[in-house]
Amino acid sequence: MKNQINIKHIKNLNNDVLRGIAFYTQELAILQERLQEIAGDNTAREVQEQVEHFQNQFIIHEKCLTELKQDIHRNDLDIKADLLLSGTMVSESIAAEHSRVHERYLNEEKIFNDLRHEFNRFSAEWL
């Protein structure tokens, strides 16, 4: 019999990650609005270069958050399929996939927060 892991912890973490993704998606929208305000008020070349930098970073993070959300939903579907077979446990491979996605989320969260702090310093200078 293959090793199995209880799903309660996995489901709670997946739900936490989905809430985190929703928060960061909203945060991105706010940051993009502030960036547009800065871009409209400042036409200096150095400001426009920074605006472009942040626009690109926001696009990258939005894509990453979307992919993470899809991967969490996919992991949830895999969990449901495994539960149909076992009742209350999921296989180690599904738990390992969950761990990989969760690590990606934690990494994205750290990078996003660093970017947000960088952007806040920029916006404090130009808003």
Results as ranks from 00 to 15, higher is better:
Leu28Pro: 09
Val101His: 06
Leu18Ser: 06
Val90Cys: 09
Ile60Tyr: 09
Ile60Thr: 11
Ile60Gly: 03
Lys8Cys: 05
Glu62Gly: 10
Ile60Asn: 13
Ala39Gln: 15
Asp82Phe: 00
Asn42Leu: 09
Asn113Ser: 11
Thr25His: 03
Asn107Trp: 03
Phe122Cys: 12
Val90Lys: 11
Glu33Val: 10
Ala22Val: 01
Lys11Glu: 06
Asn120Thr: 09
Gln36Ile: 00
Ala29Phe: 02
Asn12Ile: 13
Phe122Pro: 04
Val17Arg: 15
Met1Gln: 15
Ile60Asp: 12
Ile59Leu: 11
Leu31Phe: 12
Ile59Val: 15
Gln57Cys: 14
Met1Lys: 15
Asp76Trp: 08
Glu67His: 06
Asp76Thr: 08
Glu33Arg: 15
Asn15Arg: 14
His98Met: 07
Val90Phe: 06
Leu115Cys: 06
Phe23Ser: 02
Glu62Cys: 00
Asp41Trp: 00
Phe112Asp: 09
Gly87Leu: 07
Asp71Gly: 06
Glu37Trp: 02
Thr88Phe: 07
Ser91Glu: 07
Arg34Gly: 14
Asn56Cys: 11
Arg121Asp: 10
Leu31Pro: 06
Asn107Tyr: 03
Phe122Trp: 02
Glu52Gly: 03
Lys110Arg: 09
Val47Arg: 13
Ala44Gly: 13
Thr66Met: 08
His102Pro: 05
Ile72Lys: 03
Gly20Ala: 14
His98Ile: 04
Leu35Glu: 14
Lys110His: 08
Ile94Tyr: 05
Glu109Tyr: 02
Leu84Met: 09
Gln57Gly: 12
Gln57Pro: 13
Glu52Leu: 14
His9Cys: 09
Leu115Ala: 07
Ser123Met: 05
Glu33Trp: 06
Asp16Val: 00
Asn113Glu: 07
Leu106Ala: 10
Gln55Asn: 13
Ser99His: 07
Leu85Ala: 12
Ser123His: 04
Ala44Trp: 00
Glu62Met: 02
Gln55Thr: 12
His98Lys: 05
Glu27Gly: 00
Leu77Val: 04
Glu37Gly: 01
Arg116Phe: 05
Glu67Cys: 00
Ala95Gln: 11
Thr25Val: 02
Val51Gln: 14
Leu77Met: 11
